[in-house]
Design a protein around this nucleic acid. Structure first.
Length: 288
DNA sequence: TAGTCGTGGTA
DNA sequence: TTACCAAGACT
C-alpha cells in the first residue's frame, strides 16, 4: 500500500496550521495534546492563539496555571492544560527549551503517552516510529486484517501491525504514519467509510472479504449527561467566565444535587484545577 | 485493565 | 432525540 497511500496523502492532505512549514516541535506537541479526543475544528483557533502567545515552552511555563486553564477554554479534559503546562516547565528547565525528539524522553513528560510521544517523534522530527491512534487502528483492522473495525486496543500487537507497514527510510516512514492517520480521518472513517475515494481500495483485506460487519466486543458507551464530568465542567465554566475568585454560592447554583456537587468540587481541588482562597472563595489555580 | 476525565457536532 | 464519535492519558 506504501506508494499509493503516500502519494494520496501528498495530494489530498488537509492544510492544517500545525502542518505548515516552519512549525516547531513545540507547535506539533501542543497540537497533539489539544487533539487528544478532540475534533480538529475545535482545536484550530485555540492552537493559533497559543502559538501567537506562547511560541516557546518557557513562555507557557512563565504564566500561572489558572491562565493556562482559562486559555484552554472549552476544549475539554482541562487536566491536559495543566499537564502541558508542567511539560513546558520541564522542557524549559531540563531540555534547553527544546522539545525532545527521543520517544522515551518524551514519554517521561506529563500528559505524553504512547501515541503522543511517537506522533511528536514522527511528525516533528521525521523519526521512523509506529504512530498508533484510533484512526490507524481502524485502517489496519480493515485494510490488513479484513475486519469491520478495530477491537480493543492492544499496544504491543497494534505497534507490531504498524511497524511492518513503515518504509525503511525515516522521512518516508514519517510520511506513511501521517498518511495512515489522514486516511482514517478522511476516508476510512468509523461510520460511513468512503471506499470509492480510497487509494488502497485494491489491496484492502476488508473489501476482499466482502466488507464483513464488526464482530468484536461492543465498545463501552461514554455517557455524559448527569455524570461527574458534566458537573465538573459546569463548575469550571463559572470560573472561566469570571475574573476573580467566586463564592461557594455561585458554584452551588450550577447543580442541584449537593452530594455530587461537593464530590466534584473536591475532585477539582484535588486535580489542581481549582483552589480555595483564605477567605473561603474559589479561584483558578494561581489567580488569587 | 477497566473506569474516569469535557465538550459539542452529527446522523 | 439519542447515540455515537473525535490525533489518549492516567490510575
Amino acid at each position: 500500500m506504501d506508494d499509493a497511500l503516500i502519494l494520496w496523502y501528498t495530494k489530498n492532505k488537509r492544510s492544517l496550521p500545525w502542518r505548515e512549514p516552519g512549525v516547531t516541535a513545540w507547535g506539533v506537541l501542543v497540537s497533539e495534546i489539544m487533539l487528544q479526543q478532540t475534533p480538529v475544528a475545535r482545536v484550530e483557533p485555540i492552537w493559533l492563539e497559543w502559538m501567537a502567545r506562547w511560541p516557546v515552552p518557557s513562555g507557557l511555563a512563565a504564566v500561572s496555571q489558572g491562565e493556562v486553564v482559562r486559555a484552554w477554554g472549552k476544549l475539554g479534559y482541562p487536566r491536559r492544560a495543566l499537564r502541558l503546562h508542567a511539560a513546558a516547565a520541564e522542557i524549559a528547565a531540563h531540555h534547553n527549551d527544546i522539545v525532545p525528539s527521543d520517544v522515551d524522553t518524551l514519554l517521561a513528560l506529563p500528559g505524553i503517552g504512547d501515541y503522543t510521544a511517537r506522533a511528536v517523534a514522527a511528525f516533528a522530527y521525521s523519526r521512523r516510529v509506529p504512530v498508533v491512534d484510533t484512526n490507524v487502528r481502524r485502517v489496519v483492522a480493515r485494510a490488513v486484517h479484513g475486519a469491520g473495525d478495530a477491537g480493543p486496543a492492544s499496544n504491543a500487537r497494534d505497534m507490531a501491525d504498524v511497524e511492518v507497514l513503515l518504509p525503511a527510510a525515516d522521512a518516508e516512514a514519517a510520511l506513511m504514519s501521517i498518511a495512515l492517520m489522514e486516511l482514517g480521518a478522511m476516508v476510512c472513517t468509523a461510520r460511513t467509510p468512503r471506499c470509492v475515494d480510497c487509494p488502497i481500495f485494491g489491496s484492502c483485506a476488508w473489501q476482499k472479504a466482502g466488507r464483513p460487519e464488526y464482530t468484536g466486543p461492543a465498545k463501552p458507551v461514554q455517557r455524559f449527561a448527569g455524570t461527574d464530568r458534566q458537573v465538573r465542567g459546569l463548575l469550571l465554566d463559572v470560573l472561566r467566565d469570571t475574573d476573580g475568585p467566586v463564592t461557594r454560592a455561585r458554584l452551588d447554583a450550577v447543580w442541584a444535587d449537593s452530594g455530587q456537587r461537593d464530590r466534584c468540587l473536591d475532585s477539582l481541588l484535588v486535580d489542581g484545577l481549582l483552589e480555595q482562597t483564605d477567605a473561603g472563595l474559589f479561584a483558578l489555580p494561581g489567580e488569587h
